[in-house]
Amino acid sequence: MVLIQQVKQVIGLSEDGLTKRKTVTFGDTSAVANGRTWSILSVITMAVVWYVGSALEFINPIFWPSPQAVWEQFINISGEGYRNFSLLEHIWASLYRILIGFALGCLVGVPLGFAMGLSEVIKGWFDPVVEFFRPIPPLAFIPLVIIWSGIGERSKIMLLFFAALWVMVIAARAGVGSVKLSKIHAAYSLGASKKQVLLHVILPNSLPEIFTGMRVAMGICWGTVVAAELVAAESGVGFMIMAASKFLATDVVVLGVIIVGLIGYSIDILMRKLEAKLIPWKGKT
């Protein structure tokens, strides 16, 4: 029994006894459990529908391939690669671009956001720039970055840098704005210098907002890199999808789509775990 309880807890199936006794549940979001049972059912249903649907040939495999075909392509491409690159190399190509572009975006965006939150001049100066570029989808710049730096790595990294930059600027600025004045006053009257206030109060205090920004930026970057590779690239998951579509190889396309979804999901889970570890006080003040 104890073992079953533990397993249930690990996969998120254990229930809170008090919630069952609540009479008002509609609108009480704390009474809305994670619905893990339904998630498991949902995934199984999708898999079964896909399997049965293709087995009964409801859909032309050119429109939507069977799970077996996708699986075979997965085995095939894992072994032999696709278009001069192995599967892992394609995945790494996409991840690498994201990591560099995202890191650059954070490296520039966070200090700029801080400066904007702390100085009237910098806020006034950069506000129109940030607000103008922020709503533009990064993909709109693809033609420009290709003209500037061709279809190599540099153009994609530049695009991802742009994608991450504005989100990070706004997140960092919001983080600075969330500092309670009493914390700042407390630090000064405890003898802290301006630099110490920045490093020991403003920076840690804005970590929750910065981290939320990083999660959003990561999502945007992942979407952008795949889309950018669809337009112009020689490797990457997006390139794989695009190249396969030219031969109507929908099994490869769907394989690519599944890989994109799984990696995006994994990145977010990873970042959420990291967040819980690094910022345990988030939402508890």
């Binding site: 009493s182 006053h185 000064y188 009257s189 840690p204 006080w281 003040t285």
Partner: peptide
């Protein structure tokens, strides 16, 4: 200006949660 010769105690929320 402020200094460590005068300590402050605020109503709440002035502790550093991190």
């Amino acid at each position: 200006g402020p200094g460590s010769d005068r300590g402050m105690v605020f109503q709440q929320g002035a502790l550093f949660e991190w």
